[in-house]
């Protein structure tokens, strides 16, 4: 079994901490992993992406081939659309739907939503609002990870929770709890979608 995931967003939004959690869970549970990151100039308010590959067998390429990504996890709606050539025919997109506008020619919100609506599986939610509602505005990326969790499949939701505990443990129990709460809220958002409640 293998899962190819594209993580994306805008520099500074915290996609790499999502990668760190998944990486911790994958390593602990004996999966092969490769994760190609973007460093340097592109971090400064530009688009950023990371190719994350998980597998029960040896992985060769650090990059995901076109039409192979099982999942796009995006911190920003327009950014989720930038990588569609990588998305597999049955792939899913899990994205924040709150735009990050730092360029003059940012497209109309409705146009972005329309493009997203054409894709077979999309979970889109305002993760920043959700995190604020949970009184934990800095945990928005954990809401997103929670939303993605049911689609990662190669790792169980409980395994991801354990990884969050491990990674945040040195910051104290309050931080661990806040991140777990955000993660669980994200999982609930996707489960409602999967059960057809929304």
């Amino acid at each position: 079994m293998k899962k190819d995931i594209i993580l994306c967003g805008v520099g500074g939004q915290g996609i790499l901490s999502i990668a760190t959690i998944i990486g911790e869970a994958a390593t602990k549970n004996g999966l092969y992993l490769k994760q190609a990151e973007v460093h340097g100039m592109s971090q400064r308010g530009g688009d950023v992406q990371s190719h994350l590959r998980l597998s029960t067998d040896v992985i060769y390429s650090d990059l995901i081939p076109y039409a192979s990504a099982d999942l796009i996890i995006s911190m920003e709606p327009m950014e989720s659309l930038r990588y569609l050539t990588w998305l597999a025919a049955d792939g899913a997109v899990v994205t924040n739907n709150k735009p990050f506008v730092n360029i003059p020619d940012y497209p109309e919100h409705a146009d972005v939503q329309e493009e997203l609506a054409k894709l077979p599986t999309v979970v889109s939610f305002d993760i920043e609002q959700e995190a604020r509602d949970l009184m934990s505005p800095r945990s928005a990326n954990m809401v997103l990870l929670g939303m993605a969790a049911p689609y990662i499949e190669i790792l169980a939701i409980a395994q991801l929770r354990t990884a969050i505990e491990t990674i945040f443990s040195r910051k104290g129990q309050a931080v661990v709890d806040a991140n777990l709460k955000a993660f669980d809220a994200g999982v609930a958002i996707s489960m409602r979608k999967i059960k057809g409640e929304v």
Binding site: G45, L81, R82, N102, Y106
Partner: peptide
């Protein structure tokens, strides 16, 4: 992996066309 696959004669066809409403976001 794509341009190498192409050179080996087994290039893939993409499942989704690039989206229209995506603007460049250069670093700042």
């Amino acid at each position: 992996p794509d341009n190498v696959a192409q050179a080996l004669g087994v290039g893939k066809t993409i499942a989704f066309q690039p989206a229209k409403h995506v603007a460049a976001r250069p670093p700042q």
